[in-house]
């Protein structure tokens, strides 16, 4: 965000006959007149002596600065409309959000928060930088929050830890925890389902390939591999997840499956599938070496009170209820 920087920075050197800043503010003014949005047509009519390129540049600039929003038109499908974004700004027609802060203390704090980007900043760290007393700082932050200039985001790392960042920013995945978190809660169930689905897909692939090549162990093996990108597209199509999963997301799920001992991974140089020469991760489901260790086939192997079980006393093999059940007594 650079809205508090001097305006001169925004000037595009190539444009000498017109002032881009002027154009931008004029467009904004126009948007303010039409709170329901301005279509391309209106723009064209309003600024007849501006080239298309200049207009697009100006609009892109405004979009990048989050001054306006790009929406699809509801009345005329296929066209776009531009709408003023910030409700506060509507009233005083200022194009710079930061400028509207009059209180110098608020301004400093705002700048500090702004610097922290989408990683956010702790209240404690703000205090170190501005050397204000906690109560005052709190008040300032509250006021900024109420103006919807900054927001507090709870970090997934520690429940009580809040970080502050500019209102319009999307927090970094490391703060929210990425795909696997919603409302700072880890979605174990979601992960579990994805884990199972991946395992199932790979299992099916394995069985298919055994059927396809009954007499060739080598082909059986190679054709049971699936690449992570292949898995991503299948999983996304299944519609398990409301958000679209990325390859990274699925790879971290697949990593858990590897650790579960259900699949194995092979890295190969990419084939024709995507010929940009990168490495590709292939996965394949595997079978375990043993069905189950003999020790877990009797109650003592999995007994929760194993360490409390002795020859004599309350817990002893002689009277043990687990053994009773196992032996049908």
């Amino acid at each position: 965000m650079s809205n508090t920087h001097p305006k001169s920075e925004l000037i595009v050197p190539s444009a000498s006959t017109f002032d881009p800043i002027n154009l931008e503010s004029e467009i904004l003014q126009l948007c303010l007149q039409f709170p329901n949005g301005v279509s391309n047509k209106i723009l064209e009519n309003s600024f007849p002596n501006i080239t298309l390129e200049q207009r697009v540049n100006a609009i892109n600039r405004l979009l990048a600065l989050h001054k306006i929003d790009l929406l699809t038109s509801s009345t005329e499908p296929g066209t776009y409309i531009y709408r003023i974004r910030d409700q506060i700004n509507k009233s005083n027609s200022s194009i710079s959000i930061g400028n509207e802060i009059t209180d110098p203390m608020e301004r400093t704090v705002y700048q500090i928060v702004e610097e922290s980007g989408n990683l956010g900043i702790w209240m404690r760290d703000i205090r170190f930088k501005v050397k204000l007393s906690p109560t005052i700082l709190n008040k300032i932050l509250k006021s900024l929050e109420s103006k919807k200039l900054i927001k507090a985001v709870k970090s997934v790392h520690a429940n009580k830890k809040k970080v502050y960042m500019l209102y319009e920013l999307t927090p970094d995945p490391s703060i929210t925890g990425g795909t696997w978190y919603s409302d700072q809660e880890f979605e174990a169930e979601f992960v579990r389902i994805l884990n199972e689905q991946c395992a199932r897909l790979l299992d099916e692939r394995r069985e298919e390939s055994i059927e396809k090549f009954p007499n060739d162990p080598f082909l059986q093996r190679t054709s049971s591999f699936m690449s992570s990108s292949e898995l991503v597209s299948v999983i996304n199509q299944m519609g398990i997840s409301t958000v679209t999963l990325t390859v990274q997301d699925i790879e971290s799920i697949l990593y858990t499956l590897i650790c579960d001992g259900k699949i194995e991974k092979m890295i190969v140089a990419s084939t024709t599938m995507n010929a940009n020469g990168t490495k590709q991760n292939l996965y394949k489901s595997i079978k375990s070496m043993i069905d189950s260790a003999p020790i877990v086939r009797n109650p003592c192997g999995i007994c929760p009170i194993f360490n409390d079980c002795h020859d004599e006393g309350l817990i002893t093999p002689k009277t043990c209820i687990y053994l009773n059940k196992w032996l049908n007594f």
Binding site: D260, S288, I290, I295, V296, G301
Partner: peptide, 29 residues
């Protein structure tokens, strides 16, 4: 060592659950 590992893994899975096994394998790797 391969076979032993398989036995330990099976033991962990049944005794503590597959998530414990996951942690174990992760640590091993």
């Amino acid at each position: 060592s391969g076979l032993t590992k398989a036995h330990i893994q099976s033991f962990l899975r049944e005794r503590f659950g597959s998530n414990a096994l996951r942690i174990y394998n992760m640590l091993e790797e």
